[in-house]
Amino acid sequence: MSGRERPVRAHDLFWLVAGFSVWAGGFSALYGLHAIGCRAGWDEMDFVSLSVNRWALTGVYLAHITAGAALYLPLRAIAGRWQGESARTMRQVAVALTLAALASTIWSGAPVLVLEGCI
């Protein structure tokens, strides 16, 4: 024991929803930004051979993938300190959910890389 072990507490339940909250934020942001970009005519403005709309959506997409991946590091550190009866299952569930959410973010936003425009 390193002496930093502690039981799972109520605020640790955050890790059960953190990954998919990032997914939900990314999904909403992509859908909303796409509508705003189409309304503002960003799909008809070019920047470095791609439309501004595509740049904006790709940026949001990558930002959410980064955020989802970044959750994993603190989760490993924090969940590694959990001890007690609930620790093992909670760790398993939290890690599985964080990774599943990251995969979901990559999958559901991927169309921004291949589809274009507001039609």
Partner: peptide, 16 residues
């Protein structure tokens, strides 16, 4: 544990 993770995933994804 896998079932708990599946339920929570399903809940989020169902909103998309």
């Amino acid at each position: 544990g896998w079932i708990v993770a599946a339920i929570i995933s399903l809940a989020f994804l169902s909103f998309g």
